[in-house]
């Protein structure tokens, strides 16, 4: 569960870097999606293969959040960065698919 808004404001006031839940705990659903990939190709990957993919995904989640943070000059607000990075992809896909 994420921190309540008051808690997040407190982190900001005290210059504590905050990694939001949706970014920091995305490893679970990421490997769930890798389980779907393995199911559809009827293969089981090794522990190392899955763990390495997970590591790459988590690095990329932080990099995407950081890139959004820089693009919109958010001053290391990784929560806003994560929201924006997640939103941009969904928004582009929704726009492309018309009013549905």
């Amino acid at each position: 569960m994420p921190s309540v808004p008051d808690a997040i404001a407190t982190y900001r006031d005290n210059h504590i870097y905050y990694g939001p839940a949706k970014a920091a705990n995305a490893g679970g659903v990421a490997v769930s999606a890798l389980e779907m990939s393995q199911n559809s190709e009827r293969l089981s990957w090794s522990f190392e293969t899955v763990d390495n993919r997970l590591h790459d995904i988590m690095d990329s989640i932080f990099e995407m959040s950081e890139a959004a943070d820089k693009k919109y000059d958010l001053k290391q607000d990784y929560q806003a960065g994560a929201n924006i990075a997640g939103f941009e992809k969904v928004a582009e896909a929704m726009m492309a698919q018309g009013l549905v």
Binding site: K22, A23, A33, L34, I57, I61, S65, A85, G86, V90
Partner: peptide, 9 residues
């Protein structure tokens, strides 16, 4: 929605 999008998958 946003979490899953962030995974890039």
């Amino acid at each position: 929605i946003l979490k899953n999008s962030l995974t890039g998958l």
